[in-house]
Design a protein around this nucleic acid. Structure first.
Length: 609
DNA sequence: ACGCTCGCATCAGGTGGGAAACGG
DNA sequence: CCGTTTCCCACCTGATGCGAGCGT
């Protein structure tokens, strides 16, 4: 279940309209008032996000590494009133990505790439299986013309956790998510104002329990869930240009089980332990003062990334998850048994991130150092249009792939979903979409809309990696202090064309890369990656890895054995989203036997040096 | 004297581990 | 009794402040 579910990259986007002028969450700043904008029946335990039970697609065909942002997975379902907004407000149709034309790209292209959710009550209707045609999709009038495209920046990392069923610690004082949600958004009106916020809803109606090394349902979920479920990005409201300028991180989002706490509710999302949750990203067009303009339908879009599902726990249950957290969360470095061997490397080799506010800094994706640098650098670093790095009012300089080795294939990992605004109605016939197995035709056709090759880094991100080779090779900054000072002065970026232009501009290149990577082979695995990886893995690194394994916590299910190579590599690896996520995912898709149990009883033996 | 760089110490905040407490 | 929750701990990080050293 986890395997298939984990491989499913289902995306759901809903376009929400309202019947009255609603106040922006950020304006009201109170979760209660926020919810008040959207009838209560759409909240709480009744809001379920039912993940696909079984993917009809093999993990190989649904490789997260493919350049297809979202491959068919399973159904996305939610019972009536499952949405944050009243079902009646959902248009129920699905909007294709900007520029997408069913007739032009072909039905199979689109349907194979996206798992289209429907509105509530119909937001996530039961998946009816294959057979339906794209023509069943209602391509509604665009209305406001707001067709956002959302990239899950750290999707590979999410996938790594998702394979083992992500767990998130919740504490009374609040615990940050790791991985945290981080998005890139495109397709917004540059001058329009938007509120961006995340809502965490129940993913299913079950209570979960970790038993026998795996998660099993255990009765019904507690429907009395209450409290804040929304985290409004602190920069809301802001212009579309602002949101599209750089990565939107929700790193400060905290999860808590403390319903009584009233302070810091703006940063806390209240949830219940042992329940499965699904974060959802909402983008709401608002007026300059933060109020929603209800006179214009489709001001609200919702994006769901199934791989970001998680079970809230007060203590980690699956040791695999624990190990992943330790391996990837810089704040947990102290728990890395093989810390010495992993990080006492020459300064230029040390890429260990440090905890910061940077969305990237916290989320490393392994394998970065052993990725196909030549390929990706050739394809992206040198050729990638820096379409997102145009000058703007924000003074924060952004790195780009030209300078950062971390972005060598990060450009390929901008997983995004376009703003598929839902048209039709909840009871309409457009609930079913034909999600034919992924094929190469799709990729090449949809890529112009589905892939955005870009690499974004903020100055923060840079600052969080004072020791990274990037610094050394790009600027020759030898010390942290020197770096810190220099980074604030900005980097020599050139004005960039508009993001929209960049999307189309990149399409051909993306396609080319896709072919080279073997995405089109339908297997989702890129042989060139594994070869490159093998070549790149030097003997000394292998020895280092062997040492690390000895010191590393042993996991009965062999996660460490399977993951360690990449994990070790990741330890000194690159940034999550700018890093070779593709390579990482490829590796996992190719090496992991998903038929095996990924969970482990809590009997892991710790072998501390 | 002034400004800048650098190194060091301190601090706040985040992390998982583990034992104790809690509750059904 | 057992599963879950809470609390404290050690560890890690970046940010910050301070003073010393150096060059102009």
């Amino acid at each position: 279940m986890l395997g298939g579910e984990g491989e499913s990259s289902t995306f759901s986007s809903t376009k929400e309209a309202s019947d009255e002028r609603r106040k922006s969450p950020s304006v009201e700043g109170d979760d209660v008032t926020v919810r008040s904008r959207y009838p209560e029946h759409g909240l709480g335990a009744e809001r379920y996000y039912i993940p696909p039970s079984v993917s009809k697609q093999s993990p190989e065909t649904a490789s997260p590494c493919s350049f297809i942002p979202y491959t068919p997975g399973g159904p996305v379902y939610a019972p009536s009133a499952a949405g944050r907004y009243p079902s009646s407000l959902h248009l129920g149709s699905v909007l294709p990505p900007a520029g997408f034309s069913p007739s032009a790209t072909g039905r199979s292209h689109f349907s194979s790439a996206y798992q289209l959710g429907q509105s509530p009550g119909c937001i996530y209707p039961p998946y009816a299986g294959s057979g339906s045609a794209l023509s069943n999709m209602t391509l509604p009038a665009t209305g406001p013309g707001m067709r956002a495209q959302v990239y899950l920046c750290n999707r590979p990392l999410w996938f790594k956790f998702h394979r083992h069923q992500t767990e998130m610690i919740i504490t009374k004082q609040g615990r940050r998510m790791f991985p945290f949600l981080s998005f890139n958004i495109a397709g917004l009106n540059l001058s329009a104002h938007y509120n961006v916020f995340v809502e965490v809803v129940l993913a299913d109606p079950n209570h979960w329990r970790f038993q026998g090394g795996k998660w099993v349902t255990c009765g019904k979920a507690d429907n009395s869930s209450q409290g804040n479920k929304v985290y409004i990005h602190p920069e809301s409201p802001n212009t579309g240009a602002h949101w599209m300028r750089q990565e939107i991180s929700f790193s400060k989002l905290k999860l808590t089980n403390n319903k009584g706490t009233s302070h810091s509710t703006s940063q806390m999302v209240i949830m219940q332990s042992l329940h499965k949750y699904q974060p959802r990203l909402h983008i709401v067009e608002v007026t300059e003062d933060g109020a929603e303009d209800v006179n214009n339908d489709g001001k609200t879009q919702s994006f769901t990334f199934p791989e970001t599902q998680f079970i809230a726990v007060t203590a980690y249950q699956n040791t695999d998850i624990t190990q992943l957290k330790i391996d990837h969360n810089p704040f947990a470095k102290g728990f890395r048994d093989n810390y010495d061997s992993m990080y006492t490397v020459p300064e230029n080799d040390r890429l260990t991130p440090s905890p910061t506010d940077s969305p990237r800094a916290h989320q490393i994706v392994p394998g970065a150092r052993y990725t196909m640098q030549p390929l990706f650098q050739d394809q992206f670093v040198n050729n990638l249009p820096q379409n997102r790095f145009y000058n703007s009012e924000r003074a924060v300089p952004q790195t780009n792939s030209l300078l950062s080795p971390q972005t060598e294939d990060g450009a390929s990992q901008r997983w995004f979903v376009t703003s598929m605004q839902q048209g039709g109605n909840c009871t309409g016939t457009s609930n079913k979409l034909d999600l034919t197995p992924y094929d190469g035709e799709y990729s090449s056709s949809l890529l112009p809309y589905g892939i955005k090759s870009l690499s974004m880094q903020t100055s923060h991100a840079l600052g969080y990696y004072p020791d990274s080779p990037f610094n050394a090779m790009s600027a020759g900054w030898g010390s942290r202090a020197a770096y810190q000072r220099k980074v604030t002065t900005g980097l020599p970026w050139s004005p960039r064309p508009s993001p929209t232009a960049g999307l189309l501009e990149d399409s051909d290149k993306v396609k080319q890369i896709q072919i080279e990577e073997g995405v089109n082979d339908g297997g989702g695995l890129i042989s060139s990656w594994t070869e490159t990886q093998s070549l790149a893995l030097s003997l000394d690194k292998a020895d280092s890895y062997a040492m690390a394994c000895k010191r590393r916590r042993l996991s009965l299910n062999g996660l460490s054995t399977e993951d360690s190579p990449s994990d070790i590599k990741s330890a000194d690896g690159h940034l999550a989203d700018t890093a070779p996520c593709t390579a990482c995912d490829l590796q996992y898709a190719g090496e992991l036997d998903l038929s095996r149990s990924k969970t482990t009883p809590k009997v892991a033996v710790s072998v501390r040096a």
